[in-house]
Design a protein around this nucleic acid. Structure first.
Lengths: 139, 139
DNA sequence: ATATTTTTTGCAAAAGTGTCGCAATTTGTA
DNA sequence: TACAAATTGCGACACTTTTGCAAAAAATAT
């Protein structure tokens, strides 16, 4: 089942129309792995800003996209149905973004932590900040 | 040493003045444990919006406050010199921000994970998204 | 295929957010 | 108390995000 199929099925399941703006937003997110809101609006310049915003909000509710907090802005990425769940470490010296190995134990621990506050976890984000190997040796 | 003392000392160390707007921002953050920017501006209504923004930015640089990403907004809290290091769960239904209990094992695990990529961790953010107990029962 | 119904869009307007330069005020210091 | 330096408030501006509503597009039934 292709990403496109998963996308279309997700809309159909919720009785939502597959429209041009929605397809454009989905395509933009597939081509660029992650986008800020203004980048997304620019990528969909044939369509109205309001539609892009409404679509982004809708997709987030459906789990098609997730918001990744990066400092004080955020970026949009396709959700777990399309991309492997993962986290990143960002080097504050060179700006490199390092993908982290999966850690089921960590994920489990987070679920337990949430459960202690009677919180039902739908998703989570982890953002590590520090210095990568290269920058650590060169300083 | 009281929070107020730590606050004043931090300003003095950096040769910065203890002004009314700065005190007001600090007070607001002490009284409400966590605030969005617009809430903070409202809490400091005797002072100008620009001053509150400038103060927030300054305090963040000094480590007096930290930005907590919560979905599409962010909240401000006093930093680690004033508050224990902790993380949050954000309810996607009502927007509530729930402080999570400390978990040294989780923190340790993150350091190990970073180490596996030869990454030296300086700080990190964790954000859980889901449904709080209240919203789960009312739906 | 076409008509009908429902959903979604584009538009235009408005509210909200964050930033900047600069004169006036406040603060720290002598 | 007075002076120099730091900071504020004001006003303006550039984005960003949201909203109501008539028009258009999409889904559904004929």
């Amino acid at each position: 089942m292709s990403s496109q199929d998963i996308f279309e099925k997700s809309l159909r399941t919720h009785k939502l129309s597959l429209t041009q703006p929605r397809q454009a937003v989905f395509d933009a997110l597939q081509h660029h792995k992650s986008l800020t809101m203004s980048e997304l609006v620019k990528s969909c310049e044939n369509f109205d800003r309001a539609s892009v915003y409404r679509t982004a909000e809708l997709f987030e509710k459906l789990g098609i996209v997730v918001r990744i907090p990066t400092g004080w802005k955020y970026r949009l990425e396709l959700g777990e149905a399309f991309l492997e769940h993962h986290h990143h470490a960002t080097c504050s010296t060179c700006g490199a973004s390092i993908a982290l190995p999966e850690d089921p134990a960590l994920e489990k621990r987070l679920r337990e932590l949430a459960a202690r506050r009677d919180f039902t976890l739908t998703t989570h984000q982890i953002e590590l900040t520090g210095t990568c190997a290269g920058c650590a040796t060169n300083s």
